[in-house]
Design a protein around this nucleic acid. Structure first.
Lengths: 341, 341
DNA sequence: ATGCTCTGCTAAATCAGTTTAGCGACGAGG
DNA sequence: CCTCGTCGCTAAACTGATTTAGCAGAGCAT
C-alpha cells in the first residue's frame, strides 16, 4: 500500500529549497516571507511528483489525524443506521476527514476495545451514536477530546443531535386534523417502559406529547390508545385486531412507528377494510417499507442523514451551527384521507 | 483526545532501561538477550503507567497501521450492508484491527477522494465492496497493497468473497420439489439486463442456473417465467397479477428476491388467495421484511455477516482460509407447503 | 596476557512531517 | 563606518515509536 510515495524532502529537493520552505508553502502559512517564485517552484514540484503528505508523520507532530471516530452501540449495522453514517460520511468528506467506525454491541469489553483503538489512533473527535434515540452513559476516557452524541443525550453537558420527535407528533396530529379527523383518532403503540425510561427511548414520550398537545389545542382527545409490548409488526397486527373488535371504529390510526403500521396494514387487509377509504393510517420513521406498502404509508421521517451531517458539523465546526434538534419531515403518501361518513 | 499519555520513553525510564529494551520486551521479540528481571520491570512499568503505544508513531516506522479500509460503492448505507460491515468489524476486532469506512456512491470524484484518504493513511489493506453482487473495475492506485473484493469480482486476479447464488437457486428448487411441487412452479423476476450484464448483477444468472439445473435433474421445467424491469415490490405485484390472469394457476412462485415476494404477497392478498394453502411462495435474500410478512417468507438468506468476516480473514490471514463462495442458508418459515389438489 | 565468544544492554539512526530559532545579505539611518 | 531592521531562507529539534549497530564486561581457552 502506497510505497514509493514522494516525501516532502523529495519536493523540497526538486524545488531547490529546504523542507521547511516546502512545508510552509504547502500549508499556506501566513507571515512567511518566501518569494512568489519559491511558492511557484514548490507547487510545481509537488504537482510533478504527485506529492501527498503522510498523515501519520504529520499527526505525530500536530496531533491532528483528520479522522473522526464513529462509535455506536449497534447502530452501524441496522437498517436505520445507514443514513446516520452516510450523512456523517458526506459531511466528513466535505471537511477532508475520514470516519473510523466501531461498534460496541452494548458489550463492555467491546466498548473498551473501541475506546482504546480510538485513543491509540489519536482521532480528532468522537461521534457517539445510539440506535434508538435514548439517554446513555459516555465512557469518561473519551472525554479528553471533542465528543458529539448522535441520536442520544447524556447527563453530562455534551452537544448532541436528536430528531424532533415532539414536532413530529405535532405534524402527524395536524395532518389528521387537516383532513377533518376529530374524535375518532386511535393510537397504537403506547408502551409504559419506553415512555418512562429515557435509557430506552426518548422518542416515545416526545411523540406522544406532540400528538396530545396538538389535538388538545384543537379541542380533540384520542378515541383510544392501545398498548404494545414492543414496536414490531406482530404487535401492530395484534393491537389493530384489538382495536377493530371494539364497538366504535376509529376513522384514523396513528402508529408509533412504521413497523407497527405494517402490522396494522396486515390486520386491516384481513378484515377487508380499505386504507385510506375506510380508515386512515399515519406513522413515524419512514422505514423503507413505508413506500412499499399499498397504499404508500404517510409517515414522519427520521432525518438520519441530516442528523449524521449535523453531528460532524457540530464536532468540527463548533456549536454555532444551529439547532441540534433535527426536524422530521412528513412523507405524504396515500394512507390518509378525509374520514368516511 | 488522549493527551498526557505515557510514552515508551516514560516506560523505559521507570523501568530503568533504554527505549530499545522497553520496545523489545513489549513487542515480545525473540532472540533478545534481556534478562527475565528486565522483562518484569518493563511490564510492570507499562502496566503502572497505563502505557499504550502511539499507532501513528509506530506506523511511521513499520508501515503497519492495524487499519483496514472498507470502500464501498454505496453498500455501507444500505439496509443490506449492515451485516457486511458488522461481520468485517467483528473479524477485524478479533485481529486487533480497525475499519476505516468510505463510500464512493459510484461517483468518480468521491472514489478519488476515498483512495487518496486511504493511501494517505497507509492502511494495511482494502476491502472493496459492492452493494449488488457484480463485477467491477478496481482503481489501480489501491493495487499497491492487499485487496479483497466483497460481494464482487473483477477481471483482475484478486481474491473475492461472493454469496453462493447458484447453490441458493438449487436450495430453493429443492425445497419446492421436496414439498411435492412439480410442473406448476412459476418464477417471477427474470430480467435480461441483470442476467446478461455482470456489471449489474452476478446473482440473477447464478440463481436462475441453480433453479433450472435442479429442476431439470428432477425432470421438471418451469411452468412460466415473468419478466420484471426491476426487482422492487411494485414489479413483483404487477408480475403476480399477470401470472394470476393466466389460465393455469401455479402451485408455487419463486421470486428472485424478497422485495418481489413482498409485491407478490400484496397481489395474492388482493386476489383472496391464501399463502401457502393456495400457493407457495419462496424467495432469496432474507430481507428483514421476510420475517414480518404473514405468513413468514421462506427465503435463501444472503450471508452478509459471514461474507464480511471472510473478507477480513482473506485480507489478513491469507488465502488459505477456505472457499470464498459463502453458502446461502434457507430460512424456513411458513410460506411453502405441499401443493393443493 | 591475549584473544574470543557470549551475555545483557544501549546509542543513534530512521520514518516523514512541523516548528523553532536564527543566519547571511542588503539597504537605510545616524 | 557602524548599527539596525527586514528579507528570504535554512538547520536542527521534535513528535514516538522501531531497528541497526555496537559496547562493556564476564568467562574461557590459549
Amino acid at each position: 500500500m502506497g510505497r514509493d510515495r514522494a516525501t516532502l524532502a523529495d519536493v523540497a529537493r526538486r524545488a531547490g529549497l529546504s523542507k521547511t520552505a516546502a512545508s510552509m508553502v504547502l500549508n499556506g502559512r501566513e507571515g512567511t516571507r518566501l518569494s512568489a517564485e519559491a511558492h511557484q517552484r514548490v507547487f510545481a514540484a509537488a504537482e510533478e511528483l504527485g506529492y501527498r503528505p503522510n498523515i501519520a508523520a504529520r499527526s505525530l507532530r500536530t496531533r491532528k489525524t483528520a479522522t473522526i471516530a464513529f462509535v455506536s452501540d449497534i447502530v452501524a449495522t441496522t437498517r436505520f443506521a445507514g443514513g446516520l453514517i452516510r450523512g456523517a460520511l458526506d459531511a466528513a468528506r466535505e471537511r477532508d476527514h475520514v470516519l473510523l467506525i466501531t461498534e460496541t454491541q452494548g458489550d463492555a469489553a467491546f466498548e473498551q476495545y473501541a475506546i482504546e483503538a480510538i485513543l491509540d489512533r489519536q482521532v480528532d473527535g468522537v461521534i457517539y451514536a445510539a440506535m434508538a434515540t435514548r439517554r446513555l452513559v459516555v465512557p469518561p476516557a473519551i472525554l479528553g477530546g471533542p465528543v458529539v452524541l448522535l441520536n442520544a443525550t447524556s447527563s453530562t453537558q455534551l452537544p448532541c443531535v436528536l430528531p424532533d420527535d415532539r414536532g413530529a407528533g405535532a405534524t402527524v396530529a395536524e395532518a389528521l386534523l387537516a383532513q377533518g379527523h376529530r374524535d375518532r383518532i386511535a393510537l397504537i403503540g403506547r408502551n409504559r417502559q419506553k415512555e418512562r425510561d429515557p435509557e430506552i427511548s426518548l422518542a416515545a414520550e416526545a411523540r406522544l406529547d406532540g400528538i396530545r398537545d396538538t389535538l388538545a389545542a384543537a379541542g380533540v382527545t384520542l378515541l383510544t390508545e392501545v398498548f404494545c409490548p414492543e414496536w414490531r409488526p406482530e404487535h401492530g397486527y395484534a393491537a389493530t385486531r384489538t382495536l377493530l373488535s371494539r364497538p366504535e371504529r376509529p376513522s384514523a390510526i396513528i402508529c408509533m412507528n412504521d413497523r407497527l403500521a405494517f402490522g396494522a396494514y396486515q390486520a386491516l387487509g384481513e378484515s377487508g377494510l380499505t386504507i385510506p377509504d375506510d380508515l386512515s393510517v399515519i406513522s413515524f420513521d419512514d422505514d423503507p417499507i413505508a413506500s412499499w406498502l399499498r397504499p404508500g404509508l404517510t409517515t414522519a421521517a427520521l432525518p438520519h442523514e441530516q442528523m449524521g451531517r449535523r453531528a460532524v458539523e457540530l464536532l468540527l465546526d463548533g456549536e454555532g451551527q444551529g439547532p441540534a434538534l433535527v426536524p422530521m419531515p412528513l412523507r405524504r403518501r396515500r394512507s390518509i384521507t378525509a374520514p368516511a361518513g
